[in-house]
Nucleic acid binder design. Structure first.
Lengths: 314, 314
DNA sequence: GTTTTTCCAACAAACGTTTGCGGAATTGTT
DNA sequence: AACAATTCCGCAAACGTTTGTTGGAAAAAC
């Protein structure tokens, strides 16, 4: 339309010194008028750099993951990255498809929370081999080749256990998640180690809120004086059982949990919890990603510090 | 590596009849071995079709929007679409930047929840003009040129009110949100209209969970037999006050709410609520999008039907 | 033995950018 | 007036695909 070549237009739009001010002005004005926006696909193809991160999460609608995602999104915007969010639905097959999608879109890095049944980590490591960093978060493989950012699993469980000991509790119903997950193993181990023989433990493993409710309801017959919940989901189930049994907190029974912080504030009194912030974890994961992209080949397992937030439940 | 041309490889991978079975096999085997995945950017560029939807939302970490997003993500995957999620932070400036990003990535359609201060809808309609459908959801512009999908505000309040009447409740504490929001006005009006003079109403307006808790705690002195909460956030505050007062549900007091469904299931008994499902809204928005892409130019405002979900709280 | 058909596979153009290189026109220097 | 320097811009290649068209060899038909 202006009678000039494509390359001149390209340079004019990028304020290249080769182009005269007069031409630049004509080009920018027309671009404005036509609502021109550069085609990201063409740019990515030409540059072989996508500025795109993949993010695989079991589900978006979860108060831990959504705050993690929000943190990543904020940082992506600040750093001119886009992100592709994919849900695995905790299904290893879908997870594989998601990785495939990520590869097709030539992501520059992947944030991944594995499913509880993921056993083959090769697809992840293959990404790493072609210089696409993979940062595992929350649920991470127990493999030394993996970059991991986690909540301080052992530390958080230790803090919770110490709080229980300080309050001189004697019989604790401790609810943990799926035994295969490293998160469960670590929390359980630290919890047991800290309590030692100083208090009696009733340990139950549950896979969801409903199982937590049933397990709690049954275990209440043994008259524990405290309930410890390893996660928010377990806490919600357990709290239903306590309400069902008509017990008052902390009079009849004390409660303490490891949590992202949202759920504990829904009850009265608010539940005392050890904070594991998804938002903070997201920030940490992003900076870890940037370090990898900057050339750091140092494999690392990073953890966010945790904090006891006092409610009135113990 | 195989001594054949690129185009032959391309056809072999797509099972084109021009290619011999022997060649096809050699190609697919090598592709497998090399972990070949087609470059989505190149495909998109070549085809000028991205199979990409944009999604702009005030914030991801919200139990209404995240279920909306989850629904869209599911459908996208089923239909071979990707999606680009962007947060506006309820800031019109960021919203504009997000639209720009969408244009650059040549989205095929946009799901948009506008900010509370959005006044210029031209950027949205410009998308529509270049055959990129825009489906507004939840917070939508009051403009007849817009495709809209919403929860049925009036209908949901009416159902809640009717339920209260059926249970022969006589004194209802009704908690509503900020008076300036259209959502509040619509629900309040329908609620009042339905209850009429058949039951006594104590109406309170609150801006957050904490105010809901305080308002409930104070209003309990007037001995209402039922509490109605207009939203999830209000419900959480109100429930805390009920626990604080040591009241049992539904024996001492009945509770009913309008909700997305997650919060009511945290209590025992579960709270009866009128469902305004973000998930269903997402499904509706997606099918509306597909209809637009299929050529429907019929502008529409769709609402999801609402449903009473019985817990044991009334 | 020649022509026709069939089967495979290669060539080239196109999608929208960016950028090294070269070239024309203008200006400046003796 | 001749030459050098400067300013501005176009050509062409490349990123990784897809696909219409063309080409060549082997197989079949006459």
């Amino acid at each position: 339309m202006l009678g000039i070549s494509i390359s001149t237009v390209s340079r004019a739009l990028k304020d290249h010194p080769d182009i005269s001010d007069k031409t630049k002005q004509r080009v920018t004005e027309l671009a404005q008028a036509l609502d021109y926006e550069p085609n990201a696909n063409a740019i990515n193809l030409r540059s072989s750099k996508n500025n795109l991160f993949g993010l695989i999460v079991p589900t978006i609608s979860n108060f831990f993951y959504d705050s993690f995602i929000a943190a990543i999104e904020e940082e992506c915007r600040r750093n001119n990255y886009s992100m592709m969010i994919l849900q695995s639905g905790d299904d290893p097959v879908v997870e594989q498809e998601n990785i495939k999608l990520c590869r097709q879109n030539r992501i520059g890095g992947l944030f991944a929370c594995i499913t509880s049944q993921t056993s083959n980590f090769e697809p992840f490591f293959k990404l790493h081999n072609i210089d696409v960093p993979v940062i595992f978060f929350d649920k991470v493989p127990d493999d030394s080749r993996a970059n991991r950012v986690c909540v301080a699993d052992a530390a958080s469980a230790t803090i919770a256990a110490n709080t229980i000991l300080e309050k001189k509790k004697k019989k604790v119903l401790a609810l943990f998640g799926n035994q295969n997950l490293s998160i469960t193993k670590k929390r359980l181990e630290a919890f047991q180690k800290t309590t030692g023989k100083k208090t009696k433990l009733i340990i139950e493993h549950v896979n969801n809120a409903e199982e937590a409710q049933q397990a709690t309801y049954l275990a209440l017959k043994e008259n524990p004086d405290t309930i410890f919940c390893m996660s928010d989901e377990i806490l919600t189930g357990s709290m239903k059982a306590i309400q069902q049994a008509g017990l008052s907190i902390p009079g009849d029974i004390a409660v303490i949990a490891i949590s992202n912080g949202f759920i504990p504030k829904l009850y009265f009194p608010e539940i005392t919890y050890v904070e594991t912030s998804g938002y903070k974890l997201g920030k940490l994961a992003f900076s870890s990603m940037m370090a990898c992209l900057a050339g750091s080949t140092f494999l690392q397992e990073l953890t966010i510090e945790c904090l006891l937030v006092e409610g009135g439940s113990i």
